[in-house]
Computed example of a mutant assay.
Amino acid sequence: MTPELITKIIKGRVADGTYGRGTVLPAEKCLAAEFGVSHWGLRQALQPLKDTGILHAICGMGNLVPDPQAPQPTAREAWEITKIIRERLAEGTYAVGTWLPGTRVLAAEFGVSPATVQASLRPLKQEGLLAALESQGTYVIDPHHSCAPPPGAPSHHVAIGMVIRERLRSGIYPPDSPLPTYAELECEFGAGHSTISSALQLLREEGLVSRRQRSKRVYATVSASDPE
């Protein structure tokens, strides 16, 4: 089933009340199984509904049908993302003096709009944990010590590699499991084949992923939190 048809079906279910206001859609893995597509194919189908406000992605909850009478979910989305990024700053996943992944990469990771990502970063900038350089990006600073901008914003493939590395570390891609296909990663991150290939090459050099003989898929070797 094509993503366009899935989008139409889900939009129809929202319109006829099958998925009522204020309710959360079935888990993405359940919808993917229902429509006979991959998880990443389903996300491609859901994205137009998020872009137009028919659905909201809420971190830790899933895809919500907004209720105009309820508090705006965008604020909750941003708050949840702020919380996650704050945790990554505290544990050193995003170290002082390094660039954060770009807004587009973070939006793809969390399944939200770039505007929501920008809203989530605003409190961290106000607290002196992040700083932004116009046209370059956002980097991590120490609120108690001056910190010069790091040299050169990370290229797209490096930023994508950071996101995939975090997924390996957190167990989203367990050891010995296949990563999404190149096509699925290209769709998620809005990147070309060569960019995804370069991102995965970085992880191969670190021994975090590998390509198996007679297979076009890339597999997780160990999680990024495992000792070498």
Rank of each mutant, 00 (worst) to 15 (best):
E4R: 11
K8E: 15
I9A: 09
G12T: 14
R13M: 10
V14N: 02
G17L: 13
C30I: 13
G36L: 05
W40M: 09
L46S: 04
P48G: 13
P48F: 11
G60T: 14
P66T: 12
Q69W: 05
P73E: 02
A78K: 08
I81N: 02
K83T: 09
I84D: 13
R88C: 02
A90I: 10
T98R: 12
P101Y: 06
G102E: 10
R104P: 00
V112T: 11
V117G: 04
A119S: 15
R122Y: 06
K125L: 14
K125P: 01
A131N: 03
S135D: 08
G137F: 04
T138H: 05
V140M: 05
H145K: 10
A148R: 09
P150H: 07
A153T: 04
P154D: 04
M162G: 08
I164N: 00
E166C: 08
L168Y: 02
P178W: 11
E184G: 13
E184P: 07
E186V: 10
G190V: 09
G192H: 05
S194R: 15
T195M: 06
S197N: 15
G207T: 11
G207I: 02
S210R: 14
R211Q: 14
Q213W: 09
S215K: 14
K216H: 14
S225M: 02
D226N: 03
